[in-house]
């Protein structure tokens, strides 16, 4: 492994910015976030970076590394070509606050617009429910989400078409799926998904699924089943005919 490497880090704020090169020593086992921390401690104390757990569990240190949306804490330098500068940029789909930190507050607002969990009445006299592991597992996959927003970052509806006002993005389709498929939930979100959250904007390019650090099968397991529910409710030709009659 190389003993030092160049990190080309985007620095700036909403008014603009540019890349700045930092050369720093690298050791075995280091991840990109370690290198960023080293630069921060030794060369650029005011370099802005958001991070927390450094173990891939909190989803705070999302960035674009050599053009790929990734968690900085889970990207090992040994998997990158250190002959070339390692390019580190903030996520593109969200407004920049400073350097590598973006304003992701929109995501938290979107979550509030999704109808909350509404359980059926308890099954047993102890006030609890009975559920089978197999039924729970389907939703547990979605609940692995660490809200890193990399799927939102890579979604072209948000990133390229800036439809933040109309479309909730893959993270919240997964969230809605987790609620819709929850064994205890009794709420109905199908109409909202079509009319308010515009699930139809998603044309299943699977980019979101490919960048998910938790390997959630976003497209196939969450979005497509929701789309099917919308289609069943609103576009079933027989039902439409029946409605006309």
């Amino acid at each position: 492994m190389a003993t030092q490497a160049t990190f080309r880090i985007w620095r700036g704020d909403p008014s603009g910015g540019k890349f700045q090169d930092f050369v720093t020593p690298v050791d075995e086992g280091m991840v990109v976030l370690d290198a960023v921390h080293r630069v921060q401690a030794e060369q650029a104390p005011d370099l802005a970076v958001r991070w927390n757990c450094k173990a891939g569990k909190c989803g705070s240190c999302s960035a674009e590394i050599n053009g790929m949306p990734k968690l900085m804490c889970m990207t090992r330098l040994s998997n990158l070509n250190l002959e070339m500068p390692v390019i580190i940029e903030p996520m593109h789909a969200f407004p920049v606050i400073r350097d590598l930190v973006t304003d992701v507050s929109w995501n938290f607002e979107v979550k509030k617009t999704i109808r909350k969990f509404k359980p059926r009445s308890p099954d047993a006299p102890d006030g609890a429910w009975r559920m089978q592991q197999a039924d729970v597992e389907r939703v547990q996959e979605f609940r692995k989400c660490i809200e890193c927003f990399l799927c939102q970052d890579v979604c072209h509806v948000l990133r390229d078409h800036h439809k933040q006002d109309e479309f909730i993005g893959p993270r919240y389709l997964v969230y809605a799926a987790a609620l819709e498929m929850h064994p205890l939930d009794t709420e109905d979100r199908v109409s909202d998904l079509k009319k308010k959250h515009n699930i139809g904007y998603c044309n299943i390019t699977t980019c979101c699924r490919q960048v998910c650090p938790e390997s959630i099968t976003i497209t196939e397991n969450a979005i497509i089943p929701l789309k099917e529910r919308v289609v069943d409710r609103f576009f079933d030709p027989l039902k439409q005919l029946f409605n006309i009659i």
């Binding site: 104390p45 005011d46 400073r98």
Partner: peptide, 8 residues
């Protein structure tokens, strides 16, 4: 630097 998101 300044006060905005300044980790230092």
């Amino acid at each position: 630097g300044h006060r905005q998101y300044n980790n230092g």
